[in-house]
């Protein structure tokens, strides 16, 4: 009973559906950034190396290399600041957490691409979050990177 109550409460604060992507995918994450009363959208590109948690606690980690330095960001799936997640490339992986990528340098970082099969075709179709707006920048937005 209490378990059901908790789920019911959590459901209210969750997004209705999440963008479809998997561990190993190279993605563009569109994140809203609020500065005072201005909002703009920033894109974070990288490889999804982990998905963690269930329900409202679900999050995913995206890793990319900036100036030869590994950068990882953790996004809560149900945060309204995390909008669209666009899958750029599907990686062929055999484990759920790709922490081994942290120790890899150079070309070894690359994951083999998943080209055929159901998952690959799915990726091209449904990658948009339902509540993300089609236009990347909102009205009062500044140019990205200023």
């Amino acid at each position: 009973m209490s378990q059901q109550l908790m789920e019911m409460v959590e459901q209210r604060y969750q997004k209705e559906s999440l963008p479809e992507f998997r561990v190993g995918d190279t993605v563009d994450v569109y994140q809203k950034i609020v500065e005072g009363n201005k909002t703009r959208t920033q894109v974070f590109n990288g490889v999804v190396i982990a998905r963690k948690g269930r329900g409202i606690n679900e999050s995913f980690t995206v890793r990319r290399i900036v100036n030869n330095e590994g950068v990882e960001r953790v996004f809560p799936c149900h945060s309204h600041l995390v909008g669209k997640v666009e899958v750029k490339r599907r990686g062929k992986v055999r484990r759920s957490k790709l922490y081994f990528l942290r120790d890899r340098v150079g070309k070894a970082r690359k994951l083999r691409e998943l080209r055929s099969g159901k998952a690959a075709t799915k990726a091209t179709k449904s990658s948009k979050a339902p509540d993300s707006k089609p236009d990347v920048q909102t009205k009062d937005a500044e140019p990205v990177g200023v």
């Binding site: 409202i56 309204h80 600041l81």
Partner: peptide, 18 residues
């Protein structure tokens, strides 16, 4: 009942007890 968290439209996370 238990603890969880809620996220508002501004993206703020609040720990709550139900």
């Amino acid at each position: 009942v238990g603890m969880t968290r809620i996220i508002n439209a501004a993206g703020d996370v609040t720990p709550v007890t139900v």
